[in-house]
């Protein structure tokens, strides 16, 4: 009933070839620098001010998306779980709804509606942070919902209440510490998504890391290859962190492709 060992090796080796060859090719291309020093593509990237500015902007966006998503999801998910199971269905439905509205459609709808004449809502910064907040919701909800179930926060809350703790104390000293792994797991995934996001930021005119990568690719192919590998390493770091804090608990779904 199990696959033969030889064919398993074959499948895994073929798979490894498909996944490793593009990385090798990118590395080789990024090192093809002709007469210039071997790592000149990398040093030209790392010394370009646009690189650090765009990386900083994307980092800020990712942090903001996680913060917005958490501020929205934690109170709603926690309270629904604790007191209003009927509302939970709605929270879950709305949290997963962004899967149905692809990022390009989301930004199209937002700009069409709020693009001008809506005061602060028309500001691109508000729109991009809102869009990233929306994108982060499915991932954060799944993660936090799993977290809420696995630590039995209902009993812990009852215990805290019966010992006389107020709600601020409960949130800060009971809920957040117990949800720490869930929060971190979801947050790193959102980080990986937002750091490379392109559709929304390009439409709203932000020079994020994704947009910077595309612009670099149009003029400097070798530097672009170096950027692709740097980006891969970044994703590896975030997903690695996610796996480390969140063993065996995989969150998935369509994101900012």
């Amino acid at each position: 009933m199990r696959p033969a060992r030889g064919s398993s090796w074959l499948v895994v080796l073929l798979g490894a070839a498909y996944f490793i060859l593009p990385l090798v090719a990118t590395l080789q291309f990024s090192l093809q620098t002709g007469t210039r020093p071997l790592f000149s593509a990398y040093s030209s990237i790392l010394t370009a001010s646009g690189f650090w500015a765009s990386l900083g902007l994307s980092l800020f966006m990712a942090l903001a998306a996680v913060a917005i998503g958490l501020l929205l999801i934690i109170p709603a998910a926690y309270w629904a779980y604790l007191r209003a199971p009927k509302v939970r269905t709605w929270v879950e439905f709305l949290s997963i709804l962004p899967f149905v509205v692809p990022p390009i459609v989301l930004v199209f709808g937002m700009v069409g509606l709020y693009g001008n004449g809506f005061g602060p809502l028309s500001s691109p910064m508000v729109l991009i942070l809102a869009a990233y907040g929306v994108i982060s919701m499915p991932y954060l909800f799944r993660s936090i919902d799993n977290g809420l179930r696995s630590v039995d926060l209902r009993t812990l809350t009852q215990a805290a209440l019966s010992l006389g703790a107020g709600w601020p104390v409960i949130l800060l000293r009971i809920v957040l510490p117990n949800l720490r792994t869930a929060i971190l797991g979801g947050a790193f995934l959102v980080f990986a998504l937002i750091m490379g996001e392109y559709a929304i930021s390009s439409m709203l005119g932000f020079n994020t890391f994704g947009v910077y990568m595309l612009l670099t690719g149009q003029t400097r192919a070798h530097a672009a290859a170096a950027l692709a590998l740097i980006s891969f390493a970044l994703v590896w770091v975030f997903v690695g962190f996610m796996h480390a804090v969140n063993r065996g608990n995989i969150t998935f779904g369509p994101g900012a492709r």
Binding site: A25, G196, A225
Partner: peptide
């Protein structure tokens, strides 16, 4: 599993570059 987590999130612009470097008209492969 870890690699799958990484690769499933490695999409968009850098992925396009990686494949251009591999299977583009002057790609390595």
């Amino acid at each position: 599993m870890t690699f799958s987590g990484v690769a499933s999130n490695f999409a968009g612009i850098p992925l396009a570059f990686a494949f251009t470097a591999s299977l583009g008209p002057v790609g390595m492969i």
